[in-house]
Design a protein around this nucleic acid. Structure first.
Lengths: 336, 336
DNA sequence: TAAGGATGATATATCGTTATATCTTCTGTC
DNA sequence: GACAGAAGATATAACGATATATCATCCTTA
């Protein structure tokens, strides 16, 4: 029943001093082969693992970063995380993830916890309604931060999507198919991303001189999408197409149509956003805007590494375009 | 442009000693109101947040725990995480999550990273094929651990599901409806959970003297479920019902049926497992075994807190029963 | 008025590392 | 054989906090 392994216990067992063990573990300094072997054997025997928090305290280097996200359950976010973690783990970083569920109070507790627990950098989807004190807190602690998706501050690095462009293209696609009464489904009027997406939709509606835009907000999950679509059709029965704020909403909307005896893509067209795995597997398969969450995640991670490497460079904003993936839920409007 | 706030900078600004600030921050010791006010003001001005890693180093107390999970993208897991985090955050813990994607190599790197970064406890779904050295590593470091779902070691606390009982009930339900040719879809023969579930299925098949069991393994997502169901029907066209290893597989299977022009619950019955949100929203709605992931998460968190509080108590194993939720994808077999 | 106790603050050592400086010992060179 | 320099190891201080002991005051009370 040996005690918890530290540099000190390893040093004792190998019969050398503490700094010697430290140097062997990190491969620095001048160490004879004989000593190195002795130390490595002792370390193995004791299952020694360096305590990098103690190390970070002394050396300042800190390879632990946090990812503060608004909704873990969203498959799009889950795929982004995959990309982020892949790149950062390869660089020797540990990524720890927390879910704010878009609650600014919980978020501020979590961010404070991240500071207390010494994260060396943060990836952050700011919760809806994040107060300015939260930004002050982060900047007071000089933590490298990259915001993701929601571009809240000009003076902070950002990686996101060209939302307005994307929904413009989706809406124009539906217009070109012949749709005239097109609604926007999902999002919240307080979220930066939805605002940008709704702008793209409204812009195209106006530019084409179509029926006045109808924006129907709802949460970002299938159940909410199902209910929203049902309500929307009750209020606006003439709608022949919807542009959705996300795939989950779109798939919920499709469920609503099917339950009402209608065929998505034939009776009513549905355009999603995100291209999650579900979109391809759904029946009928969902037309959507694709952004490769995995690549986006890698880009996000890269942005943080760049910032950590050079804390003084001016803020960098990087946005990627979404590409339409036409599947089965969009088509020419039904003749009535 | 003040420097990074520490006890030392706060002490300087307030004109008191470092231990005094420490005591004020923690509310211990004897401090006059006057001094307390001075210190609190200085701390606020500097946005001081204690560095709990330095604190942990000295005091031993460590309120940072890790959750090592096999697949973040799975909605069931996402809901479990919600329950875990809810309880642990309320107790002042920070939970950091990593995704092994069921790769034992990645897992061992991640666990080592957690040890290096000083986690005070772990919740763990051991990856398929976890080697015994990984268990040795954890026990050498005396880290409180609770395994989840996959009960790999008798000497480690565990929270899980009564899998065999659950699939027995599901299978018996299908038998009672009149099904004779029932297959098992999903899981892996290396995973503990699938083995338990398959056992429950096989037991009931045998007990009822039915057609020889057919077990068709596949990954735990919709696409895999879709492909597996297609293949299964090609090989065994007489199958009238399937018990699935999870909702994702079951929903994929339903997609396959619909694409083949069949109606789940009428032509072929499908029984899921997990009762994720998708199950209720799907069309037709999925019959499944429900386990309340949120409650399960809270139970898991509680188990870890108990272990942290009393490291000496004998290992505790706690299993919950799943309840059938009958929806639209099960019914009497079609007359042929 | 001296001893005793409560009050409010500080001095010092320590946690597990790393950075820097220092100290032997050995080698090679003139 | 004396000395410079390299090689190989160690001593010491520091990171930011906490635990423990100690130190002044001040107030009681006999």
């Amino acid at each position: 029943m040996p005690e918890k392994p530290t540099l000190s216990t390893v040093a004792q067992r190998a019969g050398v001093s503490i700094p010697t063990v430290s140097q062997v573990m990190r491969g620095t300094g001048r160490i004879s082969n004989e000593t190195r072997e002795k130390v490595l054997k002792a370390a193995r025997d004791l299952h020694y693992v360096p305590n990098s928090r103690a190390a970070a305290m002394r050396s300042g280097e800190n390879k632990e970063v946090g990812f503060v996200i608004n909704h873990l359950g969203n498959p799009f976010n889950a795929e982004v995380i995959g990309g982020v973690v892949e790149l950062l783990e390869a660089e020797g970083y540990l990524v720890s993830i927390v879910d704010t569920r878009d609650d600014p109070i919980r978020q501020s507790r979590q961010l404070e916890a991240f500071i207390r627990h010494g994260r060396g950098g943060l990836l952050w989807v700011p919760a809806i309604g994040t107060p300015s004190e939260t930004f002050d807190l982060l900047s007071a602690h000089r933590i490298p931060v990259v915001t993701f998706l929601r571009h809240a501050r000009r003076d902070i690095d950002h990686v996101g999507i060209r939302n307005t462009e994307a929904t413009s293209r989706a809406t124009q696609y539906l217009v070109d198919l012949g749709h005239r009464q097109i609604a926007y489904l999902g999002g919240s009027d307080q979220a930066i991303v939805s605002n940008q997406r709704i702008t793209g939709y409204e812009l195209v509606m106006e530019r084409n001189g179509l029926e006045p835009p109808v924006v129907w907000n709802c949460d970002d999950n299938k159940l909410a999408g199902l209910e929203a679509m049902t309500d929307l059709r009750a209020k606006h029965p003439g709608i022949t197409a919807v542009v959705c704020n996300g795939d989950m909403v779109a798939l919920g909307a499709c469920s609503a149509l099917i339950r009402a005896g209608l065929r998505p893509g034939v009776d009513v067209s549905v355009f999603g956003f995100d291209d999650t795995q579900d979109a391809a597997v759904a029946t009928p398969a969902l037309t959507t805007m694709a952004v490769s969450p995995h690549k986006l995640g890698r880009k996000l991670a890269r942005a943080l590494l760049d910032r950590i490497e050079d804390p003084e460079m001016p803020p960098v904003v990087s946005e990627v375009s979404a590409k339409p993936v036409i599947r089965a839920t969009t088509g020419t409007p039904a003749k009535s």
